[in-house]
Nucleic acid binder design. Structure first.
Lengths: 155, 155
DNA sequence: TATTGTTATACTCTATAACTATA
DNA sequence: TATAGTTATAGAGTATAACAATA
């Protein structure tokens, strides 16, 4: 009997678990975000977009699409909705009149710290049983998945 | 200066990374699944449903919805599509004439081993840089997220 | 009266293809 | 000729509310 494989964890089992954990956490996030009563709707994809714009301060729709890993058409759709809700606005790029730059509105900037703080609070709750060392370990192991990848980090 | 927190990894950073890893892996999965040329369409949600039915052999739509963490109406929608594609079929539950039992078709049973083997192959590729010990570690850390949760495992 | 699943309807995310304006 | 973003259109996944059949 090959004892070395007796208790081995299959790669596919690890990734199944990864998916389940992600779904679980996403559901927690969405529940808590709803209860925040923000002056605008914030789904997962919208928040993801928002945070990329926030980190960049200003960004082309173009570049945003590639950072998010979606098509430009999808960004148009999301931006339409967010602009309607007063979360961000389009301005023409002075350097290239084909391009459009996105900025967050004051309102969004005001709310975003609430969102981030709820994110941090939920995250702490979910990982409450983890020691600092275990958090670091989990972070290191997840980073390892991206090891040796050339392309820009996708959010 | 508080050196103990100097290099600490924030919980929110760990979960951000978790999300990014999951998105990345999901994209790999979907790409490879497409190239399998199955006789039916298999998106993430459809595959998830399929695998739950497969593990259960037969299952009520009801119970399926709760295992998947979606509403019954959503299961109706998915099952309609999968039945149209000849992947599964509805039969009345003899014990409760309100209920409907789902079974996979022969065709689905024949294809599912191909799907599983591709899943395992992709998983091995993604975790190729991981030692057996690291896989076990990652599995243990992810399990810890669910620690002390009462409810049934959600897929 | 409560539960199972459906019809009717709608919203969000995503995409492809054809087009406009600019480079 | 190529790029940035849009209009037009479509499909998948998800949901709520009202309902029919059954328990």
């Amino acid at each position: 009997m090959d004892l070395s494989k007796e208790n081995a964890v299959l790669a596919v089992e690890v990734l199944d678990l990864l998916f389940r954990a992600t779904r679980h956490i996403q559901q927690e996030y969405e529940m808590k975000l709803e209860s925040l009563s923000l002056p605008f709707q914030l789904s997962g994809p919208r928040l993801r977009l928002l945070l990329v714009v926030w980190r960049a301060e200003k960004i082309r729709m173009n570049e945003l699409a590639s950072k998010l890993g979606v098509k430009p058409r999808t960004v148009t759709e999301l931006v339409d909705a967010l602009e309607r809700d007063g979360v961000l606005h389009r301005t023409p790029d002075p350097n290239d009149r084909r391009a459009t730059l996105l900025h967050l509105t004051e309102e969004a900037l005001n709310q975003i710290s609430r969102v981030r703080s709820v994110q941090m609070q939920i995250s702490d709750e979910i990982l409450q049983k983890f020691s600092a060392e275990q958090r670091t370990q989990l972070h290191a192991l997840l980073s390892k998945i991206f090891e040796g990848m050339e392309f820009d980090f996708v959010y």
